[in-house]
Design a protein around this nucleic acid. Structure first.
Lengths: 220, 220
DNA sequence: ATAATAGTGTCTATTAGACAATATCCT
DNA sequence: AGGATATTGTCTAATAGACACTATTAT
């Protein structure tokens, strides 16, 4: 081998909108000298593609499967891991709230942290969290990218279940953008983009008027 | 070492707009079994950051320095290089035409290929080129990203010299987008975005009315 | 004066937000 | 019947394209 090779890892920003707030799944790290909360991650093996590695890490750390993910960026500062050189390819994994909550039930080494904006800290139930490595900075990039892709891609729908109301969609958009939207304009834009279609069925069990359920259009 | 580590390289899409056409710098590869034209690239050494590696490769392969570059994406299919596992972090380097033309003068192993769109082939002076590895697909992603960032970022100005006319800027935008723009709307949008400022000086040596020279605003 | 391009003004079509009215369902 | 939310309609402000007009410079 001509050159000494760096380690290559994938790190995952597992994202969801829970009760109107954008959340990311973090795991406790206690291996000295690296302490604090970190995104789940794992090394890229010599015979596994990046996508296969993401799926493997997702399953190992969260038991999640069939989750939409896409690449964010790659981070390679020499000393981002103080122990040895690690280049991290960061992916965003987007998951509906119910699905994520079912998969991380009751583990004290995991936390769903709130992300308020590109510059705000990741916040757990007891206040701001100390993040390991450069993960706080990366999560800033995550929010920026999410906001940027929200209205020209279908990325927001990956955070919703198969059937959802327009109100659900609005809550997801507002959580990512960090500010409220007006209902008629939001509704029009969503319909005009042609990505979703009404199903003719309605939600049940609500105290008041039920909303129609929509789904993402499959193909065209 | 617990796992066998993959090679990590950076590949550069060195881009410019020359005579109204979007161009990318490609280099001939004759090492069997990999043949065809490829983006310049190089391995990431254990003690060099990604940005340092990009600057090093730029200088080694093109003698260019002080060029704006930004990360595109990372490609990691297991067999994208048939010889051994290589994960490539691809950067776009954006360069004004005069500067690029001065740096690649007269080298037969280099070509400035035209990029017509996300799906069109890279085309040299004698027709479509055969690209090595997955570089044809990557160049499709390059064009898509360029087009996407064109009107919410300052990326287009990195392809212009320090002083430029609004006509120059329009030519660059049209080359990237692949379709003509209307002059008043383009002019208004550029001015409204507040990224550039008139200098009060004018171009010289034109047969007809000279246009005012603009520059990118430094800070605010 | 003329050719050719620089730069500006106006009209219109589209889009997005604010606001309000009506519709519907559960209790 | 009443409360709360769903859904729709209208008005207005901002934006972008089309088109036409005026301005300026070299020859």
């Amino acid at each position: 081998m001509e050159y000494q090779r760096p380690n290559v890892a994938v790190d995952l920003a597992v994202l969801s909108v829970v009760e109107g707030a954008l959340k990311v799944l973090l795991m406790r790290r206690d291996d000295a000298p690296v302490q604090g909360w970190a995104m789940p991650g794992g090394f890229v093996h010599i015979d596994a593609s990046l996508d296969e590695t993401v799926a493997r890490v997702l399953h190992e750390k969260t038991r999640l499967a069939d989750v939409h993910f896409e690449q964010l960026a790659t981070y390679g500062a020499v000393d981002r891991d103080p122990r040895e050189r690690v280049i991290s390819i960061v992916y965003m994994a987007l998951c509906p709230a119910e699905k994520l909550l079912a998969s991380i039930n009751g583990d004290a080494d995991q936390v769903l942290a709130s992300l308020s904006g590109p510059d705000g800290p990741a916040t757990g139930p007891d206040g701001p969290l100390t993040l390991a490595f450069d993960h706080q900075m990366i999560l800033g990039d995550v929010v920026t990218r999410l906001r940027g892709k929200l209205d020209y891609s279908a990325i927001g729908f990956a955070l919703l279940p198969d059937l959802f109301t327009l109100r659900d969609a609005q809550i997801v958009h507002e959580a990512i953008l960090g500010h409220p939207l007006t209902k008629p304009a939001f509704r029009r834009k969503l319909m005009d983009r042609g990505l979703i279609a009404p199903t003719g069925t309605f939600e049940k069990g609500r105290a008041y008027r039920p909303a129609e359920l929509y789904q993402v259009k499959t193909e065209k």
